[in-house]
Nucleic acid binder design. Sequence first.
DNA 1: TTTT
DNA 2: TTTT
Lengths: 145, 145, 145, 145
Amino acid sequence: MANDLNKVLLIGRMTRDPEFKSVNGSSVVNFSIANNRVYVTNGEKKEETHYFDCVAWGRLADILKQYAGKGKQVAIEGRLQQQSWETPEGKKASKIRVYVETAQLLGGQGQGGGSGDRSDSSSSYDSGISSGYDDYPAGDDDIPF
Amino acid sequence: MANDLNKVLLIGRMTRDPEFKSVNGSSVVNFSIANNRVYVTNGEKKEETHYFDCVAWGRLADILKQYAGKGKQVAIEGRLQQQSWETPEGKKASKIRVYVETAQLLGGQGQGGGSGDRSDSSSSYDSGISSGYDDYPAGDDDIPF
Amino acid sequence: MANDLNKVLLIGRMTRDPEFKSVNGSSVVNFSIANNRVYVTNGEKKEETHYFDCVAWGRLADILKQYAGKGKQVAIEGRLQQQSWETPEGKKASKIRVYVETAQLLGGQGQGGGSGDRSDSSSSYDSGISSGYDDYPAGDDDIPF
Amino acid sequence: MANDLNKVLLIGRMTRDPEFKSVNGSSVVNFSIANNRVYVTNGEKKEETHYFDCVAWGRLADILKQYAGKGKQVAIEGRLQQQSWETPEGKKASKIRVYVETAQLLGGQGQGGGSGDRSDSSSSYDSGISSGYDDYPAGDDDIPF
DNA sequence: TTTT
DNA sequence: TTTT
């Protein structure tokens, strides 16, 4: 069986602070990204917003927990993932989300803060951070951006 | 408002023949792609298949209708799209699919055929085809691949 | 012959103002992007900067001329292109550049300005703009960002 | 400093067998990819071929050495890299190549073989293989495709 | 320097 | 359920 190409690249803003949890000792964050699309159809300008659910694991999850937040602009790279589960009624359900492999915080003019004491994290430089299970393309351990 | 980066790249096989319809005079095809993932966790090889819904419009839809089919391997480039609708019960629902902007048929050894008389389309060369509303990066009108 | 997948996605800062020219009535801009890479090798943090030459045509060129500038952070999407030419001595030469199809100006804190009177263009919102030969995924004609 | 987004995705055919060497005990392969572009300008079909130099390291290099070869169709994912060096005359020179992070061999109808005894490797199934310094998204050790 |  |  092949390992097929599967790559997603998005820029958008977090609709809320990343939701953190720990699964079997591993860090996990879930968040949603608002991605705007602007286009012109026969002279008329149109705007749409699409919302995409994202998940990140490991060190990347820790860093996003610490530095990302509602309104922050972020570039993410990852892959599409089909989650499947059974509903309480025993029906099969599935949805698509983005498994984030790398994230770069952009110096956007988001409203920042949101949930309280994250305001101190506004070191305001861009960052590229990756999942961190490998030590290859990674950020710094102390001041990731 | 911005036009945010939104790019998806996938290789996979069509799980069925593209489903064709005409919407306000425009061609539309819907299809699903099986994308395989192979990875190793602590020495153990694992395999998963993820299924992604795709839609294509215009000339690309026409070409996919004519040349693509169940089992065919295809590389697609497009963008993530959040479809939103109301259920018959008046609830809001939404799902993610891939809006295909370009497709390249790969000369894979899929089980081909499926729904009968498409076997004659096995011109068996690769192809890169795009949506065709613009005439810029496009294929030929007669022998697209 | 196929139209093979060829996609490049970069975030970086312009090393200088885009260099504008007109070729057979079409607008062309050339510019260079500084793309930073940060990684860790056996505990040690490393940094590198890579410079990539880019070219854009048409309406995208006009917009970049008007709104982009030295130090601006930009996300670009395009394709790799091999330029070939003959040297004055009659030798064959070739180099790789990025043919930009879409660009999104990011609200970064670059040193801005540079060549004088562009400072007034700091409308400071992000933007996604594309080549504009098609009217499909495009920006606005008046206030592109 | 940021770790900026830098992503390249290409499909093409190897113009020759990968050139293998060992650098400080690490495997390295160099190869060149022919990437075809087909487009239409005012009704006229045009074709171009662009050649891109690629490099892969580690386990991915080993696998490409063993299974890839001249004429093989491959999908690669990686990043742009600017190589810089000094000429024998003491001048600075630089070129752009693709640092390959993942490769998927496609079941194309390349002329295969080429340099002798690779013909036995035509297991002819697609494959997705990655650099292998991490054990995360990887192939099998024995039968990678 | 080049692939199908 | 939503960001600027």
